[in-house]
Nucleic acid binder design. Sequence first.
DNA 1: CAGCAGATTGACT
DNA 2: GTCAATCTGCTGC
Length: 199
Amino acid sequence: MLPEDFYTRKHVVQIAKDLLGKVLVTNFEGERTAGMIVETEAYAGVVDKASHAYGGRRTARTETMYSRGGVAYVYLCYGIHHLFNVVTNAEDIPHAVLIRAVEPLEGVDIMLARRGKPKLTPQLTAGPGALSRALGITTGYTGLSLNTHIFIEDRGIKIPPRDIIAGTRVGVAYAQEDAYLPYRFWVKGNPYVSRGKGL
DNA sequence: CAGCAGATTGACT
DNA sequence: GTCAATCTGCTGC
């Protein structure tokens, strides 16, 4: 499992890159599922117009972003989709990394059942709402430390730097100039990377 | 308090 | 390609 100081570092963009190749694991009621992270986005807190915490906004929803790094921030998007983020940095600095896609490694049958799908295709976990549903992550787990039911492992998988591609974040056109920041990262050529509409 | 847009997805034309 | 699903939070009456 990743040490706590992996999450409490100050540079959320570096953490977003470092998370590629790590393994996101969930274990709910004995059902274990896991996938390798292949796509992430960094959200840089109060100065980032794309972040829920821009300008220091604090609401019931965003409160967990202000926690010390190493907990889950899960929120509901469009009223339907549960989006999973990793909170980083120190307490009161609301940085987070959105996990946008994983490649299934364990518990594929469980994921298929949760998604109501007959067979494995990239759609199973390509996209932030899709992977959360496949891994059983809901807003009920927001604020949970990443060391019990949801955790991230380093299995020694190294993504070569030349295979890490940077681009603009998906669905953040409203963020004006910050929409052009290269804060989205993915593993080159991996079929599970989402085909979200960037800029 | 109504209206609207959003870190999305899947069904349908 | 278009659109509905439906919760959170911001804006404006």
